[in-house]
Each structure stands twice: as C-alpha cells, then as structure tokens.
Amino acid sequence: MTSLDNHIRIPGYRIIRQIGEGGMSVVYLAYQESLKREVALKIMRPVIADESNVVKRFKQEAEIIAKLYHPNIVSIYDVGSVDENTLFYAMPYLQHGDLTGFAYHNDEELIAVMTGLCQGFAYAHAQGVVHRDIKPENILFDQFGNVKIADFGIALSSGRRRFTKDQRIVGSIHYLSPEQARSKHVDARSDIYGLGAILYEVLTGKPVFDAADDLGVMMAHVDSPIPRLPSRVAHWQDIIDRCLAKSPNQRFQSMQALQQAIEAVTPKVNQGRVRRLKAWPYLLVSLLMLVIMSAWWFWPVEQDRNADLVIQQSAEQKPDTHKQPVDDSAGQQAQTAPIQALDAVSNPEP
C-alpha cells in the first residue's frame, strides 16, 4: 500500500482497495456513488516536480481518450484533479487479466486477438491519437474474452523507464521503437513497432531484445538485427520483420495493412484453446445463478399451488352436510308391514 491510502479522497467515489501500483500512478477499485458501479480509479502522481502544466496536459489527453468509442479500447468514465498534484481518471473495472497471462497455443486464436488490437489501434490513429506505451499490461480482457487496449496516451509523468527531463522517451523499454529510443518524431508506425514486439514475445515467450540495463535494450532497438523465430512459428517471420524494421518507412504503414497481413497467415499451430476463450466459466456460473434464483422465486408459488390442490381434493371427498334429507317413509312402511301382519295373526280381534 502507498502513503496515498491514508489521505486520498476523490469526491463521488468510495475507494475500496488498491489493485495496482506503478512508478507514476496507483490504481484502486472504487465505487462510483452516482451510478452505483465499481470502477478502476487511476490516480496519477507527477514525478517531474518542475512541470507546472502537467495537470493541463493530462486533462487534454484524457479528453481525447474519452472520445475513443471502440469495442477494443477501454473507455474513460471520468477525469479530473483533486488538487494541483493529484490527478485521476475512472475507467471500467476489468478483472479478467491482461496479455501477460496469454498462452500461445493456437494460431487462430492469436490471429483473432491481434486482429482486435489492430482494429482498436487503427481507430485511435484515425482520431489522431498515438498510444506510445504499448505493453502487455496495457492489453486487457473483458469477461467475454474480448481484447481491450488501455492507457492511451497517458504518459505525462515519468518513472525510470518513461521520461527524461527535456528529451522525452515515452514508452516501455522492451516495446520501444528506435525513433522513441532516439527521442525522434513518433507517429502511428511506432505503435506498429510496439505491437510487433508484443507479437514476438507472445510467439517466443521472451522479449525481442534484452540486456543488462535499459540503455542496452534501447541500443538494441536501434542497432541490433531482428531475431529469427523458432521453426515452429517461422510462418510469422515476415510479419515480425516488417513490424520491427528500424526505419518507419520500411514497416507496415498502417494498422489496416498489418491486420490484412495477419489475417492472411495460414494457421499451423493448434494445440488447444488459449486464455482468451476462458470466459465460459463465467457464463456457466451466471447460468447456474439464474437457475438457483428461478428455483428460489418459483418454489413458494409451487408450494402454494400444492397446498391449494390438497385442500380442494379434501373438500371434494368430505360428505355434504347441507344436502336436503330424503323422504324414506315409504321404505319404512314397507319394512314394518310384515311385522304388522304377523301381529294380526297372533292376536285376532274378538
């Protein structure tokens, strides 16, 4: 837990617990009182103390992100600041993991995930928004297994791997494009490089470049040749080569072009379903809860019906004491006639 926990108060939100922390922010599970829902509340903490316009820049970027309505982009519910040094934004609470938990076993499923990412990034690029900080932790899954891109453009304060003071290096080291590493102009093709680095890591289980320190990794992005994929996944090599080209002009020029290349891959690996399709347990639990609730709702009704049926049957079997009495005088006379005749024979009149 952080020192923020002792005093942080965001009007309109009730903080439940901390669910994440980074060099520039803390993420809380919170309850939005106005709409009565759980949200993820990310509280940004400026690290560069002398950057007086950090709040303004954060709000401007957050307003842009809030306009990105797309099925593969995590939306922002609310954005604001409590004071000059405490910024926050609220977003959906997605608790079904991120790409770090994605296990590659199936080309078709990987193609589906990558296609969703390309579509989300293409939409953002069309709105003039470049992510600049692509990494597996920023690629989330919802309860249905759909992929969601998070943290668009929110890179205003720095951790060790985020900013330098004047020449800003924006991005996470292992997914940093060469132009980002050199503090050059960044455009949508930097996101293509970052997505290619993620694809390489998913396919191999290790980062495309690694070194003893951050500087070594950055230099590898700039100078080192693109590594070869293992033979098992070599059918992805052409896409990796074009995503990770050192020059932006030699990469795919748009996310749409990358998507077309990914969809053209002939699936060769099929060792079962991957993590993305594991939304079915949640659906099964929901169905079970529905059955339980239905039984709970209709059980008293059925009990009442059974009770009414028993009462009705009992009433039908019980004699009706209110019926009119039957006139049985003729029958009684028929029964007493032989007795009267016998008395007459035994006692003749004088």
Score class of each variant (00 low, 15 high):
D107R: 02
S329V: 11
Q143F: 06
R160W: 10
Q237P: 04
Y31F: 15
K318S: 08
N6S: 14
A344V: 09
H105M: 07
E21D: 11
Y28V: 05
L244N: 05
V39E: 06
V47D: 08
D107I: 00
A220I: 08
H96V: 00
N138W: 06
A330G: 13
G23E: 13
Q256T: 07
D187G: 04
I19G: 03
K268W: 04
R37M: 15
E33T: 03
S294M: 15
K67E: 10
F152H: 05
I173W: 03
Q317K: 12
D241C: 11
V269D: 01
L284M: 14
A188K: 04
I8V: 03
I262P: 05
M1W: 05
I149H: 00
S75I: 13
A62L: 09
N72V: 00
V27Y: 07
D328M: 14
L288E: 13
G128L: 07
V27F: 06
Y77L: 04
K268T: 00
L309H: 14
D308A: 14
L4M: 11
P281G: 07
R305K: 11
R9F: 11
T266I: 11
L284F: 10
K148C: 04
S190F: 03
S183C: 15
P248C: 07
A150G: 03
I239Y: 01
D238Y: 10
T321P: 05
Q250I: 03
S3N: 12
L176A: 02
G116Q: 11
Y282V: 05
W296F: 13
I111P: 02
V326D: 11
G159P: 09
T100S: 06
I240A: 01
P325T: 01
S172A: 03
A330H: 12
A103K: 13
I239S: 01
L99G: 06
Q167C: 08
D223W: 10
L176D: 04
E349Y: 08
L277R: 12
K56G: 12
G20F: 05
M91C: 08
V285A: 15
R232L: 09
C243H: 01
I111D: 01
V147D: 02
P11T: 04
R305Y: 13
N249C: 14
R189N: 00
V301G: 10
L176N: 07
M91P: 09
G205Q: 03
Q180S: 01
V310M: 11
H7L: 07
Q317L: 15
G128M: 06
Q180P: 02
S231L: 12
D327G: 04
Q237L: 01
N53M: 13
V39R: 07
A220V: 06
I292C: 12
N72K: 02
